[in-house]
Amino acid sequence: MTGSPRTPWFWTWGWPGVHGLLAAAAGARRVYLVEPEPVLRIAMEIAQANGLQDRVVALQGE
């Protein structure tokens, strides 16, 4: 993990799938999120909470 002990992980790495979720919210027909499995679950929860699950395809990366 990078950053100082007081730096939250999301400031260093970014929110899970944020660019893909923003693209879907902006009207993209289909967005592919390629994230590690734990992050992917969070990103899909965010997509579902915002009604974007029909536009977001989740692919597990390394």
Rank of each mutant, 00 (worst) to 15 (best):
M1S: 07
M1K: 04
T2F: 03
G3N: 00
S4L: 05
S4V: 02
P5F: 01
P5G: 02
R6Y: 09
R6C: 03
R6I: 10
R6K: 07
T7M: 14
T7E: 11
P8E: 08
P8H: 07
P8R: 09
W9R: 11
W9M: 10
F10G: 08
F10W: 14
F10Y: 10
F10I: 09
W11E: 13
T12C: 04
T12D: 07
G14Y: 03
G14E: 08
W15H: 13
W15Q: 13
V18H: 14
V18D: 13
H19M: 12
H19Q: 15
H19F: 10
G20C: 12
G20H: 11
L21I: 09
L21K: 08
L21G: 09
L22Y: 07
A23K: 06
A24N: 06
A25C: 05
A26C: 04
A26R: 08
G27C: 00
G27I: 02
G27F: 03
G27A: 02
A28Y: 00
R29T: 12
R30H: 11
V31N: 02
V31C: 03
V31A: 05
V31Y: 01
V34S: 13
E35R: 12
E35M: 15
E37I: 07
P38H: 05
P38S: 07
V39K: 11
V39E: 13
L40A: 13
L40F: 06
L40Q: 06
R41Y: 08
R41C: 09
I42M: 12
A43K: 04
E45Q: 12
A47V: 04
Q48E: 14
A49G: 15
N50A: 15
N50C: 11
N50H: 14
G51I: 00
L52H: 02
L52D: 01
L52V: 04
L52R: 01
L52C: 05
Q53F: 01
D54I: 01
D54E: 14
D54C: 00
R55E: 00
R55V: 03
V56D: 00
V56S: 03
V57G: 06
V57L: 14
V57Q: 10
L59S: 12
L59E: 11
Q60P: 13
Q60C: 14
Q60S: 15
G61M: 05
